[in-house]
């Protein structure tokens, strides 16, 4: 996919980019912190709000709509997740209205009216009444926020990924994952199991009280400015990923992919909503920030081989270091 951003949008994306490194080493960890909270970077800031409707808002939602039309399996909802989906919708729209002044959620009689001037949407609905929305509640939330959404049900002292609307997955598939437990999903992550970080993370989430929000940040890479790198569409992007190490315009093709993930206990259903927001930044833009350049080089140099493999950077590291050096 070709980079089509205008210069001001591109500049804003650099300023708002959630740069994942704070030191010159990267340790894989649960790295959760309370959210929201502004985090300064060398050139800007991120994290002031949980939802982040930014310059790419309308374009990303249009892309999600196209993906869902092409492949409806990106949205999954097991039947017992209906209450959680409505809970997520109301929480998400309230959060969005509190974040972006162009949006409002008003109570009207026994219903609500959602107004989104950025998309020209005006939708009345009655909580819990599926027929009052043009699509399922989780899908509707997915049409208003850029974040991918997964809902975790809690039962038998475990968490289960029983619903989701995920169009921008990084190398996984919502349809395949639906119904899996937390431990099943987080199977092969090098080091995590040995250190017990994933069972600890699950215990932490199981005890998360209603209304509290935490976030973590994760990073990997993508060939081109491509949000949809789900396993479901591997045929479309797998080859470009394989060619990345040898392409001519490497600095424009290599993108750092950062996920800002939020975890919030929904108040009414007790489900946990897991939001994944994906940010992409081309290497060419990273090179414009000298501090990022040296930090990234240092992290790459010190990353252990199993993590390098896990992140798919084994063949790319030499070229990356050549650009960053």
């Amino acid at each position: 996919m070709v980079q089509t951003m205008s210069d001001p949008v591109r500049a804003a994306c650099i300023r708002r980019f959630p740069w994942p490194f704070t030191g010159d080493r990267y340790a894989y960890s649960a790295n959760v912190e309370p959210a929201p909270g502004a985090r300064r970077t060398l050139v800007g800031e991120w994290g002031r709000t949980i939802l982040d409707p930014d310059e790419t808002y309308a374009a990303e939602l249009a892309e999600r709509r196209d993906i869902l039309a092409r492949d409806p399996s990106r949205h999954v909802e097991l039947p017992h997740m209906r209450a959680a989906s409505w809970d997520a919708l109301l929480w998400g729209l309230r959060e969005l209205a509190a974040t972006d002044p162009a949006m409002t959620l008003d109570r009207q009689g026994d219903g609500h009216v959602w107004t989104n001037r950025r998309l020209g949407t005006r939708q009345a609905f009655r909580y819990g009444d599926d027929a009052s929305l043009p699509m399922g509640p989780l899908m509707f939330l997915g049409s208003q926020i850029q974040e991918d959404i997964v809902l975790l049900d809690q039962r038998e002292d475990r968490l289960w990924a029983d619903a989701g609307c995920v169009t921008f997955a990084s190398n996984w598939s919502m349809a395949f994952t639906a119904g899996m437990s937390f431990m099943e999903i987080h199977g092969p992550v090098p080091r995590d199991f040995a250190d017990g970080a994933i069972p600890r993370a699950e215990r932490f989430l199981i005890r998360l009280p209603a209304g509290q929000a935490y976030r973590r940040i994760n990073w990997t890479s993508t060939a081109g400015y491509r949000l949809d790198t789900a396993l479901d569409s591997y045929a479309d992007w797998g080859a470009s990923r394989a060619r990345m190490a040898d392409c001519d315009d490497f600095a424009d093709v290599f993108h750092m992919r950062v996920e800002v993930q939020h975890l919030v206990r929904l108040p009414e259903s007790g489900a946990i909503v897991f939001l994944i927001r994906t940010y992409l930044l081309p290497l060419a833009d990273i090179l414009t920030v000298p501090g990022w350049r040296t930090q990234f080089a240092s992290v790459l140099t010190h990353l252990p081989d199993d993590i390098i493999q896990y992140k798919g950077l084994a063949t790319l590291r030499p070229r990356l270091l050549a650009h960053l050096g």
């Binding site: 017992h80 209450a83 049900d153 039962r155 009280p209 209603a210 209304g211 007790g270 489900a271």
Partner: peptide, 12 residues
């Protein structure tokens, strides 16, 4: 305190 729950119905 804020409402807490340790006795929720099992959705399934």
């Amino acid at each position: 305190g804020r409402p807490r729950d340790a006795f929720a119905p099992v959705a399934t």
